[in-house]
């Protein structure tokens, strides 16, 4: 099987802290890969490298066989790697629908100067994505007024509006009430499946990982400690001892 994203021998450190050292990790089509590990292990750094925000000191990253090292976040986004953030990145003074339409217009490169945003042909599609993630009921509200759970979903919806091949998510349910977490993830994974989007998500909640990931990579002290199916990895005694902490 060919990897969509292939990282080889990545190395990067911040001061004395090693975030990655000789890390190799592949993301395959239709994967829902969870990256787990202790705080500060380097999980988010991997997402930052894959989206062009950080450049590793050594190693390579390819997307569909093409190197993306040195490319800007926007160039990588245009290639098909979208990102959702731990702290949702929304346009707070605009409504949820306006947020979505800006993303949809960007994807379609629709920048005719006098076409009203609300009348772009991609509107239906954008509304459909909002419906998929369960945010159609807040489409007229300013993004600044949304509760955290909805903000997370809108952030992910913005990424989906870009029609990515791969979606990278940083703790998609952090800051969300425990009672809402599974609903949100059910909705989200359903949307990803419908849109046929491969996903990588950083997660701390092992229940979420075992329920929604088909592969798990354990990132610890700048290394991949273990990777495989959730059943195998989460029962690995070493992973249980160093990461899960039970």
């Amino acid at each position: 099987m060919t990897a969509l994203i292939s990282a080889k021998d990545l190395a990067i450190s911040f001061g004395g802290v090693i975030a990655a050292e000789g890390v190799s990790l592949d993301v395959f089509e239709d994967d829902h890969l969870a990256i787990i590990g202790p705080n500060g292990a380097g999980k988010t750094t991997f997402l930052n490298i894959c989206t062009g925000y950080l450049k590793p000191s050594a190693g390579s990253v390819t997307f569909q066989g093409r190197s993306i090292l040195g490319s800007s976040p926007r160039a990588i986004t245009r290639m098909g790697i979208a990102r959702a953030f731990q702290i949702p990145q929304l346009f707070t003074e605009q409504t949820v629908l306006e947020n979505m339409l800006i993303a949809a217009a960007s994807q379609a490169r629709r920048f005719a100067p006098f076409t009203p945003l609300m009348q772009i042909p991609e509107r239906k599609e954008a509304e459909h994505i909002l419906e998929l993630v369960g945010c159609d009921d807040v489409s007229d509200r300013p993004a600044s007024e949304l509760p955290e759970g909805k903000r997370k979903l809108v952030d992910i919806a913005l990424a989906l509006a870009l029609k990515p091949k791969v979606l990278l998510m940083d703790e998609p349910t952090s800051g969300v009430a425990s009672s809402e977490k599974f609903d949100i993830m059910d909705t989200l994974i359903g949307a990803l499946r419908e849109q046929q989007v491969t996903s990588v998500f950083v997660e701390h909640d092992m229940e979420m990982v075992s329920r929604y990931a088909n592969r798990v990579a354990v990132w610890n002290a700048g290394h991949i400690q273990s990777q495989g199916t959730p059943e195998d990895v989460l029962q690995d005694p070493e992973v249980v001892r160093t990461v899960i902490g039970v």
């Binding site: 986004t77 707070t92 339409l101 217009a105 005719a112």
Partner: peptide, 21 residues
């Protein structure tokens, strides 16, 4: 227009604009 709305979005979140390509 979409471009005008993107201009307004600069005020609140340039990071997201970059990550919209």
């Amino acid at each position: 227009s979409p471009l005008g709305h993107t201009l307004k979005a600069i005020k609140t979140n340039e990071t997201r604009i970059e990550y919209l390509g």
